[in-house]
Amino acid sequence: MSDLGQGAPAVEGAPLDPPLLALDGVDVVRGAGRVAQEVTLRLGAGQIVALLGVNGAGKSSLVQAVAGMLPVAAGSIVLAGTPIQHLPPERRARLGIGLAPEGRRVFPGMTVRDNLLAACRADRTARQERVASVYELFPQLAPKDRTHAWQLSGGQQQMLAIGRALMNLPRVLLLDEPTLGLAPAVVADLLERLTWIAGSGTGVLIAEQNSAVLGIAHRVSVMRVGRIVLDEAGPRLARAPGMLERAMLGD
């Protein structure tokens, strides 16, 4: 899979050093309140980190802050050695941040191909090559090339949202609730594709409620009431579901 990577299974172990993405003491503001406080998190190249929490835990707000959509009131966000917490979203995208937002937010009146092309800043040849790579990663999208996005299934729209985020070859891929509303079989296929993306060296940060991501996550950070309350190897948490439940819901 030329640009978008080939599969590599999740392995147990510590965060990679030096990290590709580093959050230190991050506070995130939404409206008049702080929705994330003193968050420290590490993501390495080729690593999948799951940010788990119930509704309102602050995980989506944290992902949006990394992408530049919400302000950071304190702390630092560093991408490959460059502080980005004060940069606008478009600068962060150019430096290598890609986002597939909650709710997919594809352009419903545009075709699959045009959704992908609209997201890419490369020249015409590179854009066409990257569309082909997205279709290789998500074969279900290829026969829908000229189909309008509103006509796709929920799973296909999620594939399109992720493919669109990959069109600029991000170093870090942010995913906000990617499995929301999807059937278990579709979720399983989607998670397999994410391991392939990580296999290319892309760091993948997934904000989720669905514990199915434990099957692919190298590390899991559990967020509750705006704070990280547990950081653990994904495979270990997968073997200890009680630990995860206590962390997400409290004792």
Score class of each variant (00 low, 15 high):
residue 138 F to K: 03
residue 22 A to G: 08
residue 115 N to E: 09
residue 117 L to V: 13
residue 153 S to H: 03
residue 103 G to C: 08
residue 41 L to C: 11
residue 149 A to N: 05
residue 113 R to A: 09
residue 225 V to G: 00
residue 150 W to D: 14
residue 138 F to M: 11
residue 120 C to T: 12
residue 168 N to Q: 14
residue 32 A to I: 00
residue 11 V to L: 14
residue 58 G to K: 02
residue 58 G to F: 09
residue 235 P to I: 09
residue 113 R to F: 02
residue 84 I to Y: 01
residue 239 R to Q: 15
residue 209 Q to T: 01
residue 188 A to D: 15
residue 128 Q to D: 14
residue 234 G to V: 00
residue 145 D to L: 01
residue 41 L to H: 07
residue 162 I to Q: 05
residue 180 L to S: 13
residue 188 A to S: 13
residue 166 L to D: 04
residue 157 Q to C: 06
residue 222 V to M: 09
residue 51 L to D: 10
residue 75 G to S: 11
residue 67 A to D: 05
residue 188 A to N: 11
residue 207 A to E: 01
residue 41 L to I: 09
residue 72 V to H: 04
residue 53 G to N: 07
residue 119 A to M: 08
residue 123 D to W: 04
residue 171 R to D: 12
residue 49 V to K: 07
residue 116 L to F: 05
residue 50 A to K: 12
residue 235 P to M: 08
residue 153 S to A: 08
residue 110 M to G: 06
residue 88 P to H: 01
residue 20 L to T: 01
residue 11 V to Y: 00
residue 178 P to N: 07
residue 81 G to N: 04
residue 66 V to S: 02
residue 214 L to I: 10
residue 99 L to V: 05
residue 80 A to V: 03
residue 158 Q to A: 00
residue 232 E to W: 03
residue 185 A to F: 08
residue 174 L to T: 02
residue 132 A to C: 05
residue 38 E to T: 08
residue 196 W to Y: 13
residue 7 G to F: 09
residue 202 T to G: 06
residue 105 R to Q: 15
residue 34 R to A: 12
residue 128 Q to G: 04
residue 187 V to G: 03
residue 112 V to A: 02
residue 251 D to H: 12
residue 123 D to I: 06
residue 123 D to C: 06
residue 109 G to Q: 13
residue 177 E to G: 06
residue 211 S to W: 01
residue 13 G to H: 04
residue 19 P to C: 12
residue 132 A to T: 09
residue 223 M to K: 01
residue 115 N to I: 12
residue 232 E to F: 04
residue 176 D to L: 06
residue 193 R to D: 03
residue 241 P to W: 14
residue 155 G to C: 05
residue 48 I to W: 08
residue 61 S to I: 08
residue 101 P to V: 06
residue 91 R to C: 03
residue 35 V to K: 03
residue 17 D to C: 08
residue 22 A to M: 13
residue 213 V to H: 10
residue 218 H to V: 11
residue 188 A to V: 02
residue 153 S to I: 05
residue 212 A to G: 07
residue 114 D to C: 09
residue 237 L to D: 11
residue 89 P to H: 02
residue 154 G to E: 01
residue 128 Q to F: 04
residue 212 A to M: 12
residue 58 G to S: 12
residue 133 S to R: 08
residue 31 G to V: 02
residue 1 M to Q: 11
residue 217 A to D: 08
residue 58 G to E: 10
residue 112 V to E: 06
residue 38 E to N: 14
residue 148 H to S: 05
residue 109 G to D: 14
residue 238 A to C: 10
residue 89 P to L: 06
residue 173 L to H: 04
residue 164 R to A: 13
residue 63 V to W: 01
residue 68 G to T: 00
residue 170 P to E: 03
residue 170 P to M: 04
residue 196 W to H: 15
residue 141 L to K: 01
residue 135 Y to L: 09
residue 120 C to N: 14
residue 88 P to Y: 03
residue 134 V to P: 00
residue 94 R to E: 14
residue 229 V to G: 00
residue 54 V to R: 15
residue 163 G to D: 11
residue 249 L to G: 07
residue 141 L to N: 07
residue 170 P to N: 04
residue 42 R to E: 14
residue 126 A to C: 08
residue 245 E to L: 14
residue 139 P to M: 10
residue 101 P to E: 10
residue 120 C to R: 06
residue 151 Q to A: 15
residue 88 P to K: 00
residue 220 V to W: 08
residue 95 L to Q: 04
residue 226 G to V: 03
residue 164 R to K: 11
residue 63 V to Q: 02
residue 152 L to Y: 05
residue 176 D to N: 01
